[in-house]
């Protein structure tokens, strides 16, 4: 019976819908597919989606490394609170994040009030997209790296020091190579999350075609115009990107598990 339930849910909810999506797109034929999926506006949307996601995942990976290091290595008052706060983006609805980020970064907002006069437009801009994507992807970057830092053999750092390495040499030659696979995995997970994100971005991006329109937003607007074919083809392109990333993430995680042994 467990097999029946698993098979039913996976088939009805995951495999069948995605298969239908691909088949629908395929039924257009190669030329029809390219015509629908490769319009200038769609190409621009892929570019914005991919560019903002890569940028956000990079920022998340770097900031996440700092936060993970602090949580794993340094004991200070409030460490547990900080550790708990890291999970907020996982629990907070993305629509709320989008709403509040746009409110913060508009000219009258708490942060926009300071930033807009400096020429930094956080709301209704490319920067805004990157900001909310960093918000939604940060926990992934932190939670993959943190346990790996915790499990590092600290004797190796002492060994490096006693062999004459400076603090910087120890970090870059001994510590970083040990956690780099985890940082890359965290980056890939953050990228996967950022690439498909919709709820938070619609609030803050302004959704201007060719400028701040991401692929999921374009899918929805095509759908609202009942342009099903075009929506479907764009969705298939996005799906292909996501599944490629999923395979990459899986491979990375397997490597990480092997290294941990």
């Amino acid at each position: 019976m467990t097999f029946a339930i698993t098979a039913l849910v996976m088939t009805a909810l995951v495999l069948l819908p995605l298969a239908v999506l691909v088949l629908r797109a395929a039924s257009l034929g190669p030329q029809g597919f390219v015509a629908a999926a490769w319009t200038p506006r769609a190409r621009a949307a892929y570019g914005v989606s991919l560019g903002a996601a890569v940028l956000a995942a990079t920022v998340s990976a770097v900031l996440g490394l700092v936060v993970a290091w602090v949580l794993a290595r340094i004991d200070f008052p409030g460490r547990r609170v900080l550790d708990a706060l890291v999970d907020v983006p996982l629990a907070l609805p993305t629509a709320v994040a989008g709403l509040v980020y746009s409110a913060l970064y508009v000219e009258k907002g708490w942060l926009g009030h300071w930033l807009v006069p400096l020429g930094i437009q956080g709301a209704y801009s490319y920067l805004g997209i990157v900001l909310v994507l960093v918000f939604v992807s940060l926990p992934f970057a932190i939670r993959v790296v943190q346990p790996v830092i915790e499990s590092l053999d600290r004797d190796t750092e002492e060994a490096a020091r006693i062999l004459g390495a400076s603090r910087a040499q120890t970090f870059f030659r001994v510590v970083l190579p040990g956690i780099l696979p985890a940082v890359v995995t965290g980056f890939a997970l953050a990228l996967a999350r950022a690439l498909g994100e919709y709820g938070s971005v619609v609030f803050i991006s302004g959704n201007m075609p060719f400028k701040t329109e991401i692929a999921p937003v374009l899918i929805v607007s095509r759908l609202e115009e009942f342009a099903y074919a075009e929506a479907t083809t764009i969705a298939v392109v996005l799906l292909a990107m996501s599944l490629t990333l999923l395979i990459v993430v899986n491979a990375l995680q397997q490597r990480l598990a092997r290294n941990a042994q």
Binding site: L18, L21, A192, G196, Y198, A235, L238
Partner: peptide, 29 residues
């Protein structure tokens, strides 16, 4: 199968919604 469990995480929710529309929608399967 274990990898497939992760698919909904990596698929954009918008794509997932569209896939469901294509099956259960008025013009769907």
């Amino acid at each position: 199968l274990i990898s497939l469990f992760d698919v909904p995480f990596s698929v954009s929710p918008v794509v997932a919604g569209l896939a469901l529309v294509l099956i259960f929608g008025r013009q769907g399967l």
